[in-house]
Each structure stands twice: as structure tokens, then as C-alpha cells.
Write a protein that binds this DNA or RNA. Structure first.
Length: 269
DNA sequence: AGCTCATGGCGAG
DNA sequence: TCGCCCTGAGCTG
């Protein structure tokens, strides 16, 4: 279940285990069989992530474009490869490892030009070192749309999903329903910088932790706790529970077909 | 066995 | 805004 940090982590993991050498490619499920047959035996030359999009680079400027969507999963394991289940869209394997991709929204063989078009329609990614928040600010600062919706719009900023959205707004005390154009430059700069740090930490730990050291259960003298999704958070999926900081009941509401979570006590400005 | 829900995104109306 | 696509876990019966 992927936000941008997962995809960047996958790019590194595919590179580490399979980069620079020929790979066996197959599609046990069959939906990617023709492309897998074409790629079988060729060298995985590079890997790249932009937001929630993953690209595996092969010779002749061909790329496997992967988007996990809401359900997609990638599992790495040591050789010998187990018999695949019938939902494995793409399996790569070498002498040491194999990796199975299941349930992606997208798994397609594309050209350099098609890859460029994907980058074109994505906003800056806090995890891409060359990107910065300036382009995002130019859209946010002119938009009447809520900041909650803007953060989920991949054309505005790439890689933020429902967890980082909820958590970064909490960490900055920003009411999710404020219009983008009502944010100050300083607020946006702080949000961007925080996403850069939070998401980098997400890549490192392979999970989303957003609770500041001074707010951990230990620091606050409370029993240890891990939230449903496997990390420690302030508001995500904590509807109707008390805010860790002010005790106000966390609220939830639908916004653009997703569940939004926030603390009305802490997120006012 | 069937239902619901999930860290996403697209296209039709 | 809604329906739809992708899969699997965790319920309920």
C-alpha cells in the first residue's frame, strides 16, 4: 500500500537486487506475458521513481512502467523461486532473488517518449533531489481548492498520499479545508520541507512514522502503541479517538472519494 | 462464502 | 460525483 516513499524504496530495491545483470522475466498471470517474453534475458539497466510511478529501464530505451494503485504489492524473496500464484503480473528472477508484482493499476512496456509524458503530467516530488516546492507553490497559491485536495493532486505535488496528507497538515496545524491560496508562503515552505524529511525517513524505514520524538508514547508516559497501518501517526485512521496532543476527538470526512482525518482542536489556522 | 475496507487514479456523465 | 479497475485481509455468518 503505497505512497511515494514506497515507490522510491522499490526503485532502490529492484536496482540493488537485479540492476546491471540479465533477468528472467515472466508473467504467470498472463496479462503481461508478451512484454515479459520480450524482456526475458535482458539487462535491467536502471530504475527510477517519480511520485507513485516506478520505471524499470531496459535496453533500447524501453521501460516497464509500474503504478501500484491502491492494491498493488511487490514482494522480494531469496531464490529459489516458489511456484507463482496466478495473480503474479510480473516476476523477475536471477540466481539470488526473485520479485513478484501483484495487483498493479499499471504494468506496461513504454518508450522513452511515453515515459517523458508521464513525468510531464506529474508535479515535483519531495523525494527527487532536483525537485523543489516552487512549482507546487505557484499552483497552490493561486487555487481556491482545499489544501487537502491539492496535496492529493499528483499534478501539483507527486508522491503524497492519504497518510502523508493527513499527517503533514496536522504537524503544521493547518485546517484541511483552507483554500490553497489562503496559505502563506512560509506555511507552504514548511510543509514542503517537512515532506522532504518525512518521506525520506519513510524510504529508510519502509513505513510512515510522523510522530515527533517529544510526542511518542514513551515521551508522554503512555503505553506503547502502533497504529493500524503499521507506523505511528497523529490522526490517520484515528477517527473518534482523542488527539494525542489536545484530547479533542479526531474527525473524519470524505473528500474526493478518500477519507480525510484531522484534529479540529490543533488544526485551526 | 460473502461482505467491507484499504497508503490510487481514470473516464463517463 | 460516481462507477470501475486492480488484490487481499479481516471481519461476519
Amino acid at each position: 500500500m503505497p505512497e511515494g516513499h514506497t515507490i522510491h524504496r522499490l526503485a532502490a530495491d529492484y536496482r540493488e537486487r537485479f540492476g546491471g545483470w540479465p533477468v528472467r522475466a515472466s508473467s504467470p498471470q498472463g496479462k503481461f506475458a508478451d512484454a515479459a517474453a520480450l524482456l526475458d534475458g535482458s539487462v535491467l539497466e536502471s530504475t527510477e521513481a517519480h511520485g507513485k510511478h516506478l520505471f524499470l529501464g531496459f535496453p533500447r530505451d524501453e521501460w516497464v512502467h509500474i503504478h501500484l494503485g491502491l492494491f498493488g504489492k511487490v514482494d522480494f524473496a531469496a531464490a529459489p523461486a516458489a511456484p507463482p500464484t496466478d495473480t503474479v503480473r510480473l516476476r523477475l528472477a536471477n540466481a539470488e532473488s526473485y520479485v513478484d508484482l501483484r495487483g498493479p493499476t499499471t504494468c506496461a512496456l513504454i518508450t522513452d517518449g511515453e515515459k517523458a509524458a508521464v513525468h510531464e503530467r506529474l508535479g515535483p516530488d519531495p523525494l527527487r533531489p532536483a525537485d523543489d516546492g516552487e512549482r507546487a507553490w505557484s499552483r497552490v497559491s493561486r487555487s481556491r481548492t482545499t489544501v487537502a485536495a491539492l496535496l492529493m493532486d499528483q499534478k501539483v505535488i507527486a508522491g503524497v498520499g492519504n497518510v502523508y496528507r493527513a499527517e503533514v497538515l496536522f504537524r503544521h496545524g493547518i485546517d484541511p479545508y483552507r483554500a490553497g491560496r489562503d496559505l502563506t508562503r512560509a506555511e507552504w515552505d514548511a510543509v514542503w520541507a517537512d515532506l522532504v524529511a518525512l518521506m525520506a525517513e519513510g524510504v529508510r524505514l519502509n513505513r510512515i512514522d510522523t510522530v515527533r520524538p517529544e510526542h511518542t508514547p514513551e515521551a508522554m508516559g503512555r503505553p506503547p502503541r502502533v497504529d493500524d497501518h503499521g507506523g505511528e501517526v497523529y490522526v490517520y485512521r484515528r477517527a473518534h479517538q482523542p488527539c494525542h496532543l489536545c484530547g479533542t476527538e479526531i474527525r473524519t470526512a470524505g473528500l474526493a472519494a478518500r477519507n480525510l482525518f484531522w484534529c479540529p482542536g490543533c488544526q485551526t489556522a
